[in-house]
Write a protein that binds this DNA or RNA. Sequence first.
DNA 1: TGTTTGTCGATTGTCGACAATGATTACCCT
DNA 2: AGGGTAATCATTGTCGACAATCGACAAACA
Lengths: 229, 229
Amino acid sequence: MDDDHSILQKPLSQLIADQLKKKIWNKEIEFGERLLESDLAESFDVSRSTIREALKILEIEELVISKARKGTYVATFTEKDLDEIIELRTLIETTAFSKALPKIEACHFNALEKITKEMKIKAQAQDWKALFDLDVQFHRYVVDLCDNSRIIKIYDSLQVQIRTFLMHLDQYYSSFHSFYEEHQALLEALKTKDSSVVKEKVKNHIVYVEEKILGRKEVEDDKVIPNQK
Amino acid sequence: MDDDHSILQKPLSQLIADQLKKKIWNKEIEFGERLLESDLAESFDVSRSTIREALKILEIEELVISKARKGTYVATFTEKDLDEIIELRTLIETTAFSKALPKIEACHFNALEKITKEMKIKAQAQDWKALFDLDVQFHRYVVDLCDNSRIIKIYDSLQVQIRTFLMHLDQYYSSFHSFYEEHQALLEALKTKDSSVVKEKVKNHIVYVEEKILGRKEVEDDKVIPNQK
DNA sequence: TGTTTGTCGATTGTCGACAATGATTACCCT
DNA sequence: AGGGTAATCATTGTCGACAATCGACAAACA
């Protein structure tokens, strides 16, 4: 439907990769599904080489995995994957926030407050998608101040994976208002300029997201989460 | 070694990628050098498509960076990059070690002790290359127990980058014996099974490596080992 | 009947050629 | 002569075809 035969400034393979990503996010392509190069080439009306490059891009983003001579498949997310992602995100984000702390100026607080206020509006409008975008924006804004490109890159990679996972959930378990309050609290924590306070709040926030958004209860030693449909 | 007209079980592009990696490590290709697809294709006697795939593989490993329509270049390592890598390595490795702690059994300690003893031997033989391999082996062995594939993957990626950097140093500034002692101490720390002790020691160890191996601080009684080749 | 082996189709890997784009040079106009 | 513009050249992006390999099915053998 979206014809991209307009002026292409970006490589075609990149556009294809983006479209494929959207298709995965829109559940037009399921987890674990095999991505057949020839079929994709036909459906996108490009050559297989281009598809190949697009798949390599998605592989870098860890959205697909390809095994030699066995094809490439959309990455699957098990409970274990989710645990890993959350653990890593906690580690990376507490560090990034802590590192960003001394660099935060008034202007940054203003930007963050603007985002938070926008959240309040979208929460009242019950616009989940907008809220999610604002969420990403908020966290990414702070992480970006941490001055370590590798940490930022890892965060982005995690964000893509989280988004992919969220998009595949049938329903979200969060209340709109508490979502806004959470980020308000996060902002307040940042304003204390106290590293340990911030770290604690970030950790707390991620646990909150885990429990509320994903509908998980307390994390016990054994995983007792009925996730299968 | 060089002629790959034997039975290839792996994709040609992967072999090329490996060879390119070696070339970078052997300083046959310098940092920041442009990798011209047509030249590489000719020198490896394969098609440009294959070279392209190989470069994409190296891009995933972050050994090269490619800008659209501007070519791909060998990644450069500035002081800032080194700082970033060390910071990230400290974060990842303290976490991984700490997570691995409860999973370490007697058999693991045996394996680690074996590695450490081997280090002592190689230290006496002043075999730097073997020592370096044992070093990687030691750390990777523990990290592997942390039960988070994403953390392991990040660690591997860092290791590749560190190796790339080290290979380009003209000389090392470490004493062989202290190198062995460091890992012995690391092993002792692990045996305490105390998370904070381990984290502290790992942090300390990485700083040690930074200062000694990379010569960021002057070291009094150590030899300077020329980096052959 | 169960196992091995050979053949075939499907799919990925590799190739060389063409197209699009960026950089460089040569040229023209004032 | 200088600055801007058009021709050119080098290099990456894309293409369609061929080759190598894998998986499945069928045939031969015990």
